[in-house]
Amino acid sequence: MARTETSPIFALIDDIDAAARVVEELEQVGVKPDQVEILSGLPIDHAILGRPKIPERMTVITPMGALIGFLTALLFVFGTVALYPIRVGGHAYFALPPKLIIMYELTMLGIILSTFFAGTFWESGLLPFRKKVYDPAVSDGRIGFVISVTGDLRERALEVLRHWGAEIKEPEWRAL
């Protein structure tokens, strides 16, 4: 694909310190943080690169999952007894202690499933087979910059990247 004005800039940097300087200078020349996407082969905290903190809703999703698991357990352990009562050996219909075990396990299962499906897939936007800009060098430890800017800003961004020794590449749209 030929490089056009509308296609993003893709650059690779080896060093974290240089990447942090690039982030800083891009902001100085007028590139907004949401116009820059950073790809890396290891987790780099937002504070290290001076990027805004990524918002996340895990604190809502996980308790919701726990609640769903807990309510499912309630349905099983109390609903069953209420619907089909069987009197056995003078035991209480609603004996709480043994039911606590099922309630505990299903609550934990709710947390596990909600964290995995909603937290990891939905929140991260991990959807396979969609074409995205990527370079395998990222998994070899290089830091990738995908910068979506046009016109004069594009030139200034390129200048910053060149100054810090970034390797500017043709953006490859890969079906990952």
């Binding site: 996407e37 950073i38 790809l39 890396s40 082969g41 290891l42 987790p43 780099i44 937002h46 990027r51 990524i54 996340e56 895990m58 964290t115 995995f116 937290g119 990891t120 897939f121 929140e123 991260s124 936007g125 991990l126 959807l127 396979p128 087979f129 969609r130 995205k132 990527y134 990222v138 998994s139 990738g144 990952l176």
Partner: peptide, 16 residues
């Protein structure tokens, strides 16, 4: 799953 190593992906993975 289409992993690219974006900041969102890493942040959510680490929290999870």
């Amino acid at each position: 799953l289409g992993w690219r190593g974006t900041e969102e992906e890493w942040r959510h993975l680490m929290t999870a």
